[in-house]
Simulated assay, not measured.
Amino acid sequence: MKLQRNGRSKALAIGAVALVSSLSLAACGSDNNNSSAGSTGGTGGSSTSAAAIKCADKQAPMLAAGSTAQGTAIDVWKAAFGAACPSSTLNYSGGGSGAGVQQFNQGKVTFAGSDAALKATEVEASKAVCTGGGQGIDLPMVGGLVSIIFNVQGVDHLVLDAPTLAKIFDSQITKWNAPEIAALNPGVTLPAADIQAFHRSDDSGTTQNLTAYLAKASNGAWAYPAAKTWAGKGGQSAAQSAGVSAQVKSVPNSIGYAELSYAQQNNLKSASIATGASKPVDATAVNAATTIATAKSAGASNPNDLALSLDYATKAEGAYPIVLVTYEIVCDKGNKPETLDTLKAFLNYTISDAGQHAIGDKGYVPLPKEVSDKVKTVIGTLS
C-alpha cells in the first residue's frame, strides 16, 4: 500500500503537474461554496462529465455532510451526477469535518467529508453504524491546499515561513513590520500596523492540516499538536472557511487561512511559503500537486483504509507544503442498502478522470493515478 519515493513517484509528480497545468486556474469557481442545503444544483461540469457517469441500477437520494474544503467540488460533482441520474440527488451540508464525522457515526448521513483521516476512537465509534462487522474507512477524493490569505495595506506579495506563521497565529508576532516578517520580505514596505489573525471556530480538517504543517516545520515555534480544534492564543474566530475568508477580505491588515478555492472566489492574496527550497513557493494547484504526488500510505490496519501521510516539512523545489486531502468517509461493510448502489456510482464518478478533471479549475488538485486506482478498487468492494 505504500507510495514509494522512487522513479515511479517522480513520474507521478510530473504527471500530476502536467494534468493540473492543463487546467485553467483563473476560474473563480461556484458562488455557492457553502453547499449547505438543497438537492442537486451548482454549476460546471455537468455537460462535459455526463459521459463518465454510470447511474446505479437502484437510484436513491443521499445525505452527506462535513468538510467545507470540498464544498465547491461537491457542487460540481452533484450537478453533473444529478443531471445524469435524476433520482440520485445529493444533499450535502457543510459544517466542517468534525461535524461530518459526528453525523456519520450517528448514522445520519450516507457519507461524510473530512480533511483529516479518522482517529482510532472515531473508527471504533463507526462500528455501531457500519453493520455486519464493518467500520468507517477513509477514501481520498479531493486534493487541495491551504492558502495563507492576507489583506495587508500596501502589500501585494508576501513571503512567510513556518516559524513566523506559528508566532503570528500564536500572538507572539503582533506587528506587520516585525523583524521576522521584514527579513522574509526585503524591499517590501510593511505597515507598522497591528496584525489581526483569524482562525476557524468550528472543528476543521483545514485547521488540522495547517497545524500539522506548523507542528512539523516551525522548529518548535508551534507548541501545540496538530488538531481540528484551534489551540493558538489570541486572534479572532470565524465559522468555516467562508467566514474566515469574509473576515480577512473585510478587515485591513488581517491574515487567515482557507482553501485555494476560497481565496480565488474572494479575490484574496495568498502568501508564498519559504520552505528551505531555493525560492519561496507560491500557493498554486501545480505546486500542491508536487507534494501530494509523494504522499505515502498512513499505514492503517485496515487495508481498505487509504489514509495518506503528507510531507508538510518538504523542502523540494516547487513543492507547496500546506496541502490537504479530503476523504469521503464510508463503511467498508454495512453501508445502508437503500443507498449503497447510488453511493458507489457517485464515488466511481468523482474518482474518475472526468470527475477529477471537472474540479481542476476550481482550485483543486487532481489526485495522482496511483492513489485514484486504489480508491477505485476499494469502491468496488463496498457492501
Rank of each mutant, 00 (worst) to 15 (best):
L190R: 08
P186E: 01
S297K: 08
R8G: 00
N151A: 06
A221H: 03
W230M: 12
K362V: 07
T110I: 08
E122G: 10
S30L: 09
Q135R: 12
Y320F: 11
V152W: 03
A80H: 03
S24Q: 13
A52N: 05
Q172C: 07
K333V: 13
K119F: 11
H357I: 15
L268A: 08
D353P: 04
C28E: 14
K376W: 00
A16P: 02
I53L: 06
K175G: 11
K54L: 10
V375N: 00
A288I: 03
A183Y: 00
S97F: 06
D311S: 12
P86G: 03
L12Q: 13
T350D: 00
S126Q: 07
Q240G: 09
N34P: 01
L260C: 11
Q135P: 04
K108Y: 06
K249Y: 00
N219E: 15
I292H: 01
S36W: 11
L324S: 06
W230E: 10
L268D: 11
Q172I: 10
D373M: 11
P140E: 03
D138K: 06
T189E: 13
E124G: 11
L19A: 10
A319G: 06
V375Q: 02
D332S: 07
I173F: 02
G355A: 05
G136I: 03
G94P: 02
A289F: 03
G187L: 14
P303T: 05
N287K: 08
A212E: 04
C130K: 02
I292K: 01
S22T: 14
N209I: 09
A238W: 02
V159L: 06
S24A: 14
T72A: 12
S278F: 04
K54N: 13
Q70D: 06
V76G: 01
A300R: 09
V188G: 04
A128Q: 14
Q240P: 00
D202N: 15
T339F: 03
G363C: 11
L260E: 05
A116D: 07
R5K: 14
D203C: 05
A226Y: 05
A79E: 10
A125S: 15
G143E: 02
K216C: 06
D361N: 15
T110A: 13
G98E: 07
S171F: 01
G256Y: 01
Y262W: 09
V129S: 07
G7D: 13
P179C: 08
L343D: 02
C85L: 08
Q208M: 11
G113H: 01
T174R: 07
A285V: 15
V129A: 10
D341H: 07
T207A: 07
S309E: 14
P225N: 06
Y364E: 09
L90H: 03
P252D: 05
D203N: 13
A56Y: 04
S93L: 11
V323H: 03
S352K: 06
T207V: 12
W77P: 04
D311N: 15
L268R: 06
A69P: 00
G38M: 03
V17L: 13
Q247H: 01
Y320G: 04
A13R: 12
L23W: 00
A117C: 04
